[in-house]
């Protein structure tokens, strides 16, 4: 999961920590400032930091740093949507990871749906987190699970899988059909499929 600020500080070098201090201060300032931004306004300084986090803090820490920035700036759905659509794949991933704690309702679902349309497994894996578990409707959620199996995204990436998959007869049918298709082609059935199928088969059928 996303490390805390303290854990991140312990991992970052001095220059990266100083950079992060400044970036978080700018984000905090943006969160409290009463400014009348317009759609055409230049991006705030913290948003530029959001883009450049990888090269200043290391790509391995970029998800954590970007998520912290989004929290500190109290990014709303409009801001998250803009950052997603203007972002690299790495930036889009950070937005997706931050959704559960920043957006209480389903308003950001279009971003999840956009990510699920890609074949980029970094985005697919981030899209099936707790936000999708809470808000994604049954049909697209089932297709998201199936897409994970198709693209070899580990099924552990799917948040709240036991609850969402429990006794889902339609999901069980889709999984069984997929297993049959693989078998007919002489190809192995992904091991993760059996795990999900065991959850999805309604009790009276199991």
């Amino acid at each position: 999961m996303t490390p805390t600020r303290k854990e991140l500080d312990d991992r970052l070098g001095g220059a990266a920590r100083a950079w992060l201090d400044e970036a978080l201060a700018e984000a905090a300032h943006a969160a409290t400032a009463t400014h009348g931004t317009t759609p055409c306004a230049a991006p705030p300084s913290w948003a530029l930091r959001f883009a450049s986090a990888g090269r200043h803090c290391g790509q391995e820490h970029a998800d954590a740093v970007r998520t912290l920035l989004l929290h500190e700036a109290r990014a709303d759905v409009d801001t998250l949507t803009r950052l997603y659509h203007h972002g690299t794949a790495a930036e889009r991933r950070a937005v997706l990871l931050a959704l559960p704690s920043l957006v209480p309702g389903p308003q950001a679902l279009p971003l999840v749906e956009d990510a699920l349309r890609t074949n980029d497994t970094r985005l697919v894996a981030a899209a099936v987190g707790p936000y999708a578990a809470a808000h994604l409707a049954p049909h697209p959620w089932r297709h998201a699970v199936l897409k994970c199996l198709f693209t070899a995204v580990p099924i552990d990436a799917v948040a709240d899988l036991p609850r969402r998959a429990h006794a889902d007869a339609e999901l069980a049918r889709m999984l069984a059909d997929y297993a049959a298709e693989r078998t007919a082609a002489g190809r192995p059935v992904p091991a993760d499929l059996h795990r999900v199928l065991a959850l999805a088969v309604p009790p009276e059928e199991s």
Binding site: R55, Q59, N119, T121, R122, A125, F150, T151, A152, V153
Partner: peptide, 20 residues
Amino acid sequence: PLDLPTPGALHEGNSILRGG
């Protein structure tokens, strides 16, 4: 990045998949 590249690395162990 100065640590590039890691020969043989696959992104998160995945390959390009087109419909499975």
